[in-house]
Nucleic acid binder design. Structure first.
Lengths: 209, 209
DNA sequence: CAATAATGTGAACCATCATTCACATGGAGA
DNA sequence: TCTCCATGTGAATGATGGTTCACATTATTG
């Protein structure tokens, strides 16, 4: 029973998506060409019509990941709110993205990716640095607006921002979805916020107990 | 050339340590029984005199990891300083541990570990939860001392604390040691600190610009 | 309608690697 | 010194999995 033919663009997309989903369920170790092919509905060797190797497929996964992250940022950028509110939205969107896409941390933290080939490590680093740069830009904007303290280094704050997400997603993974990453984010956000926001006299009273 | 005989306790220790170091250099994917054996100085099949399977070796790696983390905490617990200073020390020690032991994030984030067998995932979760609990205890102590705001949930603060370390270590890994995780920690700490410490009138002035 | 290129298929190949087993060896106790 | 058990060895095994290749089939183009 032969699968119906598709253009190589369609197949590349299907294969990358299938690989991405597989990584989320069976992990990087369980990611085999056979499994990908089965999910797509073709035969293992058929993948080589559209990718030259398994490494190429993994690269495609990274591209997907990048699109997801930058899509988030661009959606947020359109909001007409203060920088702090923008960051808050981004935090929630990021956690949602990770929850729906269990593969993200698996890919980011897998040795296959960043111990595999040097260019892969560089690529992943580029993705993360770009994301950090966009967060840092939001922070900088907040400083211009006057909502974020000017003494802070935007890049450092951006790295801290990522720290709001990562431990939660790890715990969420380890607990098989039991741990409530969203709740942690909601709890952590005001605390983080109180550290970076410019304090007005009225707000100062709220922070103190 | 036969290796000189060792007691099984010594060999188990050597094998676990060799595996731990290997994970740091070649990653979880490159961790083979052959590579471990070579590093120890015996033959692959010899490992099976001391471990029943590769999974057993990986479990031993987790035990090593746990000892490293709890060793840190216990060393800190002896310090006769305020809770905030204790946390600061722990932060620095943790980053140092990760830097010297490149294997830690690799193990924590590898699918082989937490997608492998359910008991392994539970074990790893236990290690992390225990670490979090000890941090939370420090936070709680700080609240009793009056140096940390009482309104905060110690567990949530503990998770945030881990967030101070994780992104840094990832960036450090991806940049092949170029990124300065220590510097980020030193920058982030006072910001984090300003969010959790109980504010006295004099300190309040410092925080405002 | 014919021809050509692109896509899909199944078998085979080859490398890697965990694991087993029969055998060798060396040290501790009788 | 002799014996026995734990440890080390090397060859063999079996499974997994990425990759290749010759061939079939479908779509497209002239």
């Amino acid at each position: 029973m032969a699968a119906e033919k598709q253009t190589t663009e369609v197949r590349q997309d299907e294969i990358a998506r299938a690989a991405l989903e597989l990584v989320g369920t069976v992990g990087m170790k369980g990611l085999s060409m056979a499994a990908i092919a089965r999910k797509v509905g073709i035969v293992p060797s058929g993948i080589y019509r559209h990718f030259s190797s398994k490494d190429d497929v993994i690269d495609a996964i990274l591209d997907y990941l990048q699109r997801g992250l930058s899509g988030n940022v661009r959606a947020i950028a359109l909001l007409e709110v203060t920088a702090l509110e923008r960051l808050h939205s981004l935090l929630m969107k990021h956690i949602d993205l990770v929850r729906q896409n269990k593969s993200i941390p698996v890919v980011v933290f897998s040795t296959e990716v960043y111990n595999g080939s040097p260019h892969r490590r560089v690529k992943l680093r580029g993705i993360i640095e770009a994301y950090l740069a966009e967060i840092a830009a939001m922070v900088g904007q907040g400083q211009l607006e006057g909502s974020i303290r000017e003494a802070l280094d935007p890049k450092a704050v951006a790295v801290m921002f990522m720290g709001l997400v990562q431990p939660s997603t790890i715990l969420w993974h380890l607990s098989a979805g039991e741990y409530d990453a969203m709740k942690q984010a909601e709890t952590a956000w005001p605390i983080f916020c109180s550290a970076i926001e410019r304090r007005t006299p009225s707000e100062r009273k709220v922070i103190m107990e």
